[in-house]
């Protein structure tokens, strides 16, 4: 689907990247811990998170994340917005909680960017 469809499904507000709404997205990753994002998220995915600091943008940039969806009506700081503009990473914000956001996108066909984390390393 297009980022504009994501916007409609989530009744989201576009904070950065109004010009990128025709971008195609298929997959998503949701997390509040950036190291989890770095460990598992794949390029081209949507990143769903409740964090709003500049490290979210840095993390998205490092991984070539397609767009950031802030949940729970979170508003990013002006530093975060400026960095997102500079690095050309769209930010949308939705009033839904992460569970609801993931559920609504999943129901419309967005899939997780990885199917499963194997329990090989005894992750804690």
């Amino acid at each position: 689907m297009k980022l504009s469809d994501v916007k409609d499904i989530l009744d989201a507000e576009v904070i950065v990247g109004e010009e990128n709404l025709d971008m195609e997205v298929k997959t998503a990753f949701g997390a509040d811990l950036m190291s989890d994002v770095l460990a598992f998220a794949k390029s081209g995915s949507l990143l769903l998170t409740g964090l709003t600091n500049t490290q979210v943008i840095r993390t998205a940039n490092v991984l070539d994340i397609a767009a950031i969806i802030l949940v729970r009506a979170k508003q990013p700081s002006s530093e975060t917005i400026a960095l997102a503009r500079e690095l050309k990473i769209p930010i949308l914000t939705t009033k839904y909680i992460l569970f609801e956001t993931a559920g609504r996108l999943y129901a419309k066909g967005i899939v997780g960017c990885l199917p499963k984390v194997e329990n090989t390393s005894g992750r804690t």
Binding site: D32, M34, T49, L51, N53, V56
Partner: peptide, 24 residues
């Protein structure tokens, strides 16, 4: 070891400090 961390609250609020950095 994954999960081992000495991070303080400030680091955790940034979304780090879960003991994954060196593993990543």
């Amino acid at each position: 070891q994954e999960g081992w961390s000495t991070a303080d609250q400030r680091i955790r609020e940034m979304g780090f400090g879960a003991g994954m950095g060196l593993c990543n």
